[in-house]
Amino acid sequence: MAHIKKKRGGVQMRLEPAEAALVRGLLGQLLEMLGDPPETGEGLAALGIAEDAALSDDPVIARLFPDAYRDDGEAAGEFRRYTELGLRDGKREAADVVLATLGDDEAARVDALLDEGQARAWLKALNDLRLALGTRLDIGEDWYEQVGALDRDDPRLPMFAAYDWLTAVQEDLVHAVW
């Protein structure tokens, strides 16, 4: 099982190979959803400003990049134009920090000492994964009951299990950085 502990100089993060594989796989899907950064060096994109921007039709992307104004579509669009490219960069960077911690060796245990910045990137990336899974699964406050009512062969069960595991790891990590 994942082992997360506050240490002098940072947070120790130990993961079994299967746990590392799970995080790697989910981060790969997240990065795919986030897409590549736009070509730089030209126009507004070079300044981190989008030509135009609207709330995504994809509920996961819409949750990761919500409207900043509830009753003012124009202001929400302007905010998005100026912030979303940068926010996407930040989420990609956090995911990359986690992938770097995990390394490429799929058979190896992970045993890393995270500094403050790395731990924060882990927290953000784990949270993004939980937001993505939670949105896909339509998680509610009573999601444990939701799961209890599922058939044993329901295809969503592994996703709920992954969500549950990510939640436990994030909880441990928050307490380790506090």
């Binding site: 990049f65 919500p66 900043a68 912030t83």
Partner: peptide, 18 residues
């Protein structure tokens, strides 16, 4: 407030300006 909300979004919180 826009800067604060942008930072809160970077942490995945659902935040708005008003």
């Amino acid at each position: 407030m826009e800067r604060d909300v942008e930072i809160l979004h970077s942490y995945g919180l659902w935040a708005t300006v008003k």
